[in-house]
Write a protein that binds this DNA or RNA. Structure first.
Lengths: 109, 109
DNA sequence: TGCTTATATAAGCATATAATTATATTATAA
DNA sequence: TTATAATATAATTATATGCTTATATAAGCA
């Protein structure tokens, strides 16, 4: 893996929405509609951000009925770097708690 | 410092040239002409990359005669994050050694 | 002083990026 | 089987980015 690979990773995470997504996923999997709610963005916009993360393999997707849950791919070769970054950004837990208190958390099995 | 600040930092470092520059500066200060030589890029292109790093305050500049030397600003609030990133990218020392062996290192006092 | 070297800045252009709108796909439920 | 909900994709558009070319500034030197 050369410097170019790392620069591309940083560019990918150099977006407020995608970086926050990674910070949220650090606390566990989330589905698309949760992201839509948290970021107050259109569903296609969210979907396209997730696609970019998925294309590089940084996140896994898991279909559960009508929902698709995303999670961090901890086996990705760049995961150590991702982890180092997540550990340096502000914790996103509050946004999950707010979602939960609004009764909008999709916590199915 | 909010998540937006961090995303902007990552975007800034999400460029092959700027990320390599930071990796090089980790080994000590460099002047513009050294970067021009290392990256085989035009002087204005190099200058513009350095400007972006300087605008955010990630690097310091020091004039020494006709040369301007750049170095890491270790007092920057985002420096811990920068450091974490540098520690995860491939070491850029080789490029400095190649420069040295080509007799193109500006090692004035 | 005038010439050269090192660097910065500005303008222009081609490409990349992120959002919107519209449409397609997939699953559930009536 | 039709309707609805969740998600994905495609096309479009506006903005951002990185490079080039041209020019400006600043220091050293003949």
């Amino acid at each position: 893996m050369n410097i170019h690979t790392y620069a591309n990773l940083l560019k990918l995470l150099g977006d407020k929405t995608r970086l926050s997504m990674m910070g949220l996923l650090h606390h566990g999997e989330c589905c698309v509609c949760e992201f839509v709610e948290i970021f107050q963005m259109s569903q296609p916009a969210i979907s396209q951000h997730l696609r970019k993360l998925r294309d590089v393999g940084l996140v896994n997707e898991r279909r559960k009925g009508q929902w698709i849950f995303y999670s961090l791919n901890q086996t990705h070769p760049l995961f150590p770097m991702v982890q180092a970054i997540i550990q340096n950004i502000p914790d996103q837990k509050e946004r999950l708690e707010a979602l939960e208190q609004a009764g909008l958390r999709i916590s199915c099995c």
